[in-house]
Structure formats: structure tokens, C-alpha cells
Design a protein around this nucleic acid. Structure first.
Lengths: 233, 233
DNA sequence: TTAAAACTGTGTTATACAGCACAAAATTAC
DNA sequence: GTAATTTTGTGCTGTATAACACAGTTTTAA
């Protein structure tokens, strides 16, 4: 049995965090309703104000969750890496999406109808608790982020964004080059600043030998000083 | 049977949203472990970095959830009114409080040990779903708020705060005076600005006949224009 | 292969907002 | 009831950061 080139075993392996919580029948129910979808670079996955129908699990690639604000300025709220779940909040809150999602890179996403999740939730306490934990963690991060984005200065915010990217997506074999290559604009949208200021501040960091930049490749040289800059704001 | 002057029936009536989800034995378990605590005006309820032990339900009074940021500047994250639940997020996320809570006014709070909640969660799906819903709603609000606080201008943020207070705590008999009397500093901390700017912008709003101010009493006169100011930022 | 579009970089200007100082008023404490 | 403290209000100054303009570079498309 396969779903769009992926065997159900492969998918189960990927979504093991949820899969292992389920009974045999529940797994069957899930397997029968899973679909897999591919997204090109920069393709939208879902849009703000849309009605949520599926929970998603990123199988491969990288995804941003963002929100368009005043004057077309976009704010990246969080980023997803494999294998993380997203797009379920709005359904649980019985509302519409307040964010949008797009692929940073070509991505493969596993889609599970929320109606199925709801059915499973009615008979599986462990699954309920999985979502409680996830939501609680994300809410804590959101509260932190609100204060950091509003109160820290530009250097602190950019330093934080770089460290955040390292933590989220890791580094290449050299142990210091960020594994994600973002445009300056995305970097700005992550750190709540204009593109010009992201460019300028990034150059300053390079001059100060905190990082090196080669196009979109960013190498973190002095993580300790970056942390300090991020902390003091 | 009473808990600090409150009969268990009175408390049950207050926390009905959770109470009605429970079986007879579960109610007994809860009732046996509930305590009630009173807080004076401005008294701290819990602090950042503390270990969470109890879920709380505000029975009467008004409470702010806030976070101290860079340079002692404090940001109000959300406000609670009776009968709302709070202080449970950190426990679910298996971490410490990332926020603090304090009483705006003399408040009475019902405390339920998280260990009891956890036990109940293991046997009560409806209760699980209650928390999933609450957390999902709060996360949506947090995401909205992040963008509003970072991107809107000062007037937009203050207008939003005033409307938010009206929505949260309602108005007095005259249908327009906000039922909560905040210091200019709290108003500033709610809207992410300095106290001086809160004062100034508030006066401007009064001059423009959007509101009237009499000490800490704020009367909303032109809600439509306020909404417009809040929306355009 | 060339044209078009998107991205990156830099300098200049404009401005929203913070920071500070100080006075008046209101509240709290003794 | 008087002093001390906190809160409110106002003006002035400084600065962080947005906004704009433009040029060079890279990527995409036809």
C-alpha cells in the first residue's frame, strides 16, 4: 500500500510520534485517510482566513508559518522542520487560519483530515495529551517571542533569529554554516525589521567577525558573542 | 463543606465549565484538593521562572499576565476575568512559568493542584479537549498580538488596547465607561509603549473626542473611529 | 541569449518613539 | 494632618529604525 510514492510504512515511520500512540484499528483509520502532497519552493501551503480541514506533517523540506501585517509587511511566526506537525490549531479553536504557511524549499507534506483526528481524539487520551503538550509549548514560545520582538533592538533581534535558525535547522558538516539559506527579506521578516536593515546589520555582524556571509550562506563564527547580543537586546 | 469561606457548591458553580465535565468521583477528587486564596491589589500571584504546581481559576477580581523584558520594561501578555482558568500552560509544557501574574484588583482565586488535573486528564477525554481548545484559542490570540504589537503604530496599539479592555471587562451602566481603571503605566505596558506616550496619546484621543478621561476612568465615545484607528495601525 | 524580474547593497533623509527632566496632582504612609 | 511617595502631565532632545532612491548583481523566464 502506497500514498503518492510513499509506502504507508515509510509514512508511519515519519509520523511515529503520533503513530505509536494509536491502536491497530486507529492506525488503519489514519492510514486510509492520509494523503501526501508536494510543494515547490515558495509555494503557499495554506492561507490566512481559510477554513482549516487538514492537519499537516512536514515529511521533508522546510516551511515557514507567517502572517501579513500592516502595509504588506510580513512576520514569520515560526518555522517547521521534518518531522513536525502544524496547521491544526485553528481547527481546535473552531476558527479560521490566522496565519499562512509556505515552503522555504521543495517540501513533502502528509495531510490528515481533521475530522479523522477528531474521531481519534474521542477515543485516545494519549493523543489528546500529545496535542495539549504541543500547544502548551508553542504558546510559551509565542509569549517569549512577543516580548523579544517588541523590546529588543535590531541587533538583538537579528542575533536571536540567527541562533534560532541554527537551533531549528542545524548546521552543515563544517559545524558552523547554517543549513538554511534564506533571502535577506525572509531574514528581515523573521526579525521584524526592514530588508535594508537586515542587510546592514548582517554586514555589521560580518565586519565584527561574529559571522561570515557568502551570498545566502551564513556561517556562525562567534556564537557566544551572538548570544550575548541577543540576550542584552 | 467549605473552602476558605466558599462552599464547595459556590465554587462548583463558578468553575462549572470544568465541573460539568467530571464524573461524581472525579468531582469528589477535585473538591478534596481545591483551595482558595485571596490576593490584594497589585499582589503577585506567581512569578516568572517559578515551578508551576497549581492551575488557577479567577473567581472574582481582575488579573494580568505579564512578562518583564529588556530594561525592566514590562509587557502585559493577557488579562483574566472571572471565571477564567490560567497558570496551567507551563506545567503542560513541562517547563517553568515564562510569565508572571499579578492582581489588578483584590482577587479571589481557586487553586487546583496540577497533579490532580493530570490524574483527571488520564481518565477524562472531555477535560483533555477543554484544554486543547483553550490552548488553541490562546495561541491564535498570541500570534495575532505579536504582529499587532510589532507592526502597528502607537495610536493603533493604544486604540486596540482600549477596545480589548472593553471586550474583556465590559463597561459600566452608562454603556461606555470601561469597568477597569488602569494606571497609565499598565495601559502603556499593555500597548507596548512608554508611560509618557500612553498619557500623550490618551490625551490626543480625548481631544479628538474619541474618548473622555477623568483620572483613570475612561469613557469610549466613538468606538467606530477607534476601531478604524486600530485596524489601519 | 537576451530581457525581465528579483535580490542585494549603500547612502540619504525623515520620523516615530524613547529618554529625560521637571512640575503638579493624587495617593499613601506615618 | 503633614510628609513622602507615586502617579500624571508636558516639553525638549536624541536616536533607532523606517522609507526612499538608486546601482550593481544574481536569478528566472521566454
Amino acid at each position: 500500500m502506497t500514498v503518492d510514492d510513499f509506502s504507508i510504512e515509510e509514512i508511519a515511520e515519519s509520523i511515529t510520534e503520533i503513530w505509536q500512540l494509536l491502536s491497530k484499528e486507529q492506525r488503519k483509520l489514519l492510514a486510509d485517510h492520509i494523503t501526501v502532497q508536494k510543494f515547490k519552493k515558495n509555494e503557499m501551503i495554506y492561507c490566512e482566513d481559510e477554513k482549516p480541514t487538514h492537519m499537516m506533517c512536514l515529511l521533508s523540506g522546510k516551511v515557514k508559518i507567517f502572517k501579513d501585517g500592516v502595509g504588506g509587511r510580513s512576520q514569520i511566526i515560526r518555522v517547521m522542520k521534518p518531522v513536525e506537525y502544524f496547521a491544526y490549531r485553528a481547527y481546535f479553536a473552531e476558527g479560521y487560519y490566522v496565519t499562512a504557511a509556505a515552503a522555504f524549499e521543495p517540501s513533502v507534506i502528509c495531510m490528515i483530515p481533521m475530522t479523522i483526528i477528531t474521531r481519534l481524539l474521542n477515543e485516545n487520551i494519549a493523543l489528546c495529551q500529545f496535542f495539549i503538550r504541543q500547544l502548551a509549548i508553542d504558546l510559551g514560545i509565542a509569549d517569549e517571542r512577543t516580548v523579544n520582538l517588541t523590546q529588543k533592538h535590531i541587533r538583538g533581534r537579528l542575533a536571536e533569529a540567527l541562533l534560532f535558525l541554527k537551533e531549528s535547522y542545524g548546521v552543515e558538516e563544517d559545524e558552523s554554516t547554517l543549513s538554511i539559506y534564506l533571502s535577506r527579506e525572509d531574514l528581515a521578516n523573521l526579525s521584524n525589521m526592514t530588508t535594508s536593515n537586515a542587510i546592514r546589520t548582517l554586514s555589521n555582524f560580518a565586519t565584527e567577525k561574529l559571522i561570515t556571509i557568502d551570498g545566502r550562506k551564513i556561517k556562525i563564527i562567534d556564537e557566544e558573542r551572538l548570544k550575548k547580543i541577543s540576550k542584552i537586546g
